Deep mutational scan, measured.
Amino acid sequence: IINNLKLIREKKKISQSELAALLEVSRQTINGIEKNKYNPSLQLALKIAYYLNTPLEDIFQW
């Protein structure tokens, strides 16, 4: 999986903590996703895309 979450999140000036709060997950979860240590569920990936107002395929590429 190619993961552009960190790049997109930083472009939008959103911290890991802010995104985690919006998604109701821990900051460690966001960190793990960004470091490719954790693959989000489809539901979480869709929520990330929604809150970042970015197409899912721009954030994650399988």
Rank of each mutant, 00 (worst) to 15 (best):
Tyr50Cys: 10
Leu22Cys: 11
Asn4Lys: 09
Leu7Lys: 13
Glu18Gly: 07
Ser17Ala: 14
Ala21Trp: 06
Ala21Ile: 08
Glu57Phe: 07
Val25Ile: 10
Val25Ala: 03
Ala21Asn: 12
Tyr51Glu: 06
Asp58Trp: 08
Leu23Gly: 02
Glu10Asp: 09
Leu52Ile: 04
Ala21Leu: 10
Ile1Met: 13
Asn3Ile: 05
Lys11Asn: 11
Lys6Asp: 02
Lys12Cys: 08
Gln28Tyr: 10
Ile14Arg: 03
Gly32Lys: 13
Tyr38Ala: 09
Leu42Asp: 05
Leu56His: 04
Lys35Tyr: 10
Ile1Val: 10
Asn31Asp: 15
Gln61Asp: 11
Asn4Tyr: 07
Ile14Asp: 01
Glu24Ile: 06
Pro40Ser: 03
Asn39Thr: 14
Lys47Ser: 08
Phe60Thr: 00
Glu10Gln: 09
Ala49Glu: 03
Ile8Tyr: 09
Leu52Thr: 04
Ile48Ser: 00
Ile1Phe: 15
Ile48Lys: 00
Gly32Phe: 12
Gln28Met: 12
Leu44His: 03
Asn3Pro: 03
Leu19Thr: 00
Tyr50Met: 13
Lys13Cys: 09
Glu24Gly: 15
Lys35Asp: 14
Gln28Phe: 09
Ser26Met: 04
Lys47Ile: 04
Thr54Cys: 08
Gln43Leu: 11
Glu34Gly: 03
Glu10Asn: 09
Ala45Lys: 12
Leu7Glu: 15
Glu57Thr: 10
Glu34Asp: 02
Asn4Val: 05
Leu44Gln: 07
Gln28Trp: 12
Glu57Gln: 10
Asn39Ser: 14
Gly32Leu: 15
Leu7Asp: 13
Gln61Met: 09
Leu22Asn: 14
Leu5Trp: 01
Ser17Cys: 11
Phe60Cys: 05
Pro40Gln: 02
Pro40Leu: 08
Phe60Arg: 00
Asn4Cys: 09
Asn4Ile: 04
Lys12Thr: 06
Lys6Leu: 06
Lys6Trp: 06
Val25Cys: 07
Leu23Tyr: 02
Tyr38Arg: 13
Glu34Phe: 05
Asn4Ser: 06
Phe60Pro: 01
Gly32Met: 14
Leu22Phe: 14
Pro40Trp: 03
Trp62Arg: 09
Ile14Glu: 02
Arg9Ile: 03
Ile8Trp: 07
Lys13Ser: 10
Glu24Asn: 15
Asn53Ile: 04
Gln16Pro: 05
Gly32Trp: 12
Ile59Asp: 01
Ala20Arg: 01
Ser15Met: 05
Trp62Leu: 14
Lys35Asn: 15
Asp58Phe: 07
Pro55Lys: 07
Ser15Gly: 07
Ser17Arg: 13
Lys6Ala: 11
Lys13Phe: 07
Asn3Gly: 04
Ser26His: 06
Pro40Met: 05
Leu52Lys: 01
Ala49Ile: 02
Asn31Thr: 07
Asp58Ala: 09
Lys11Tyr: 09
Gln61Asn: 11
Lys12Pro: 00
Ile30Phe: 04
Tyr51Leu: 13
Ile48Glu: 00
Gln43Ala: 14
Ile2Leu: 11
